[in-house]
């Protein structure tokens, strides 16, 4: 093509643009399955609920169950522990949440949360740390009796999973 010729949109430009566009869509359509295959598969999603019998847990004790490969703490708190968790001013908390928001109303003694440190995913140790709740040995995060972060590198409170009381003695997580 003559270089001095004035640049106008030609049939060939149109063909280039449409070819590139179709090519890009096609490439995306091929790449997406290759990426999405790495997301949790049906077998993993099928493990999404766990039912737990809580009739044997004494006040002040806790158990740990596995849900979706992660530990879940179920703690039956004593009245003193509940009062202590509720006596904290919200301004003191790095991630302000009321204790009431972290339990089901009327079931205040039951704290159900993911036993996963929000820093880098270790399992915190119970009845340890400066706030009598949990302490993560990996990088030194301290959690209180409501599972809220109080000190250390973790940015958030321990997560409360979706759960419900099926009956008085059974909790369904997920």
């Amino acid at each position: 093509m003559d270089k001095s010729e004035k640049k106008t949109t030609t049939r060939r430009d149109f063909l280039f643009t449409t070819s590139y566009t179709v090519g890009a869509v096609g490439l995306g359509a091929v790449v997406w399955p290759l990426i999405d295959q790495m997301n949790p598969d049906k077998a993993q999603k099928a493990l999404a609920t766990t039912e737990v019998d809580i009739s044997q847990i004494e006040p002040g004790k806790s158990i740990t169950v596995l849900w979706r490969g992660k530990p879940v703490f179920l703690k039956r708190r004593t009245q003193e522990e509940i009062l202590e968790a509720r006596s904290v001013a919200l301004e003191e908390l790095p991630h302000p949440e009321k204790d009431e928001e972290r339990v089901k109303s009327g079931k205040d003694e039951w704290l159900v949360m993911l036993g996963v440190c929000t820093h880098l995913g270790c399992v915190p140790l119970s009845n340890k740390g400066d706030y009598k709740g949990w302490f993560c040995p990996c990088h030194g995060s301290h959690y209180d009796l409501s599972g809220r972060i109080r000190k250390g590198p973790a940015p958030k409170n321990m997560e409360i999973p979706k759960y419900e009381f099926v009956d008085a003695n059974t909790i369904k997580i997920g």
């Binding site: 949790p40 993993q44 979706r68 996963v116 270790c122």
Partner: peptide, 27 residues
């Protein structure tokens, strides 16, 4: 667990990326 959780520090999409890396809800 610790190393893959590093990616959860990314704002907004961090948790999705971590789940994608795991192919599950944990290692």
């Amino acid at each position: 667990t610790v190393i893959t959780n590093l990616f959860s520090a990314i704002p907004l999409v961090g948790d999705s990326i971590t789940t994608w890396l795991w192919g599950a809800y944990s290692v």
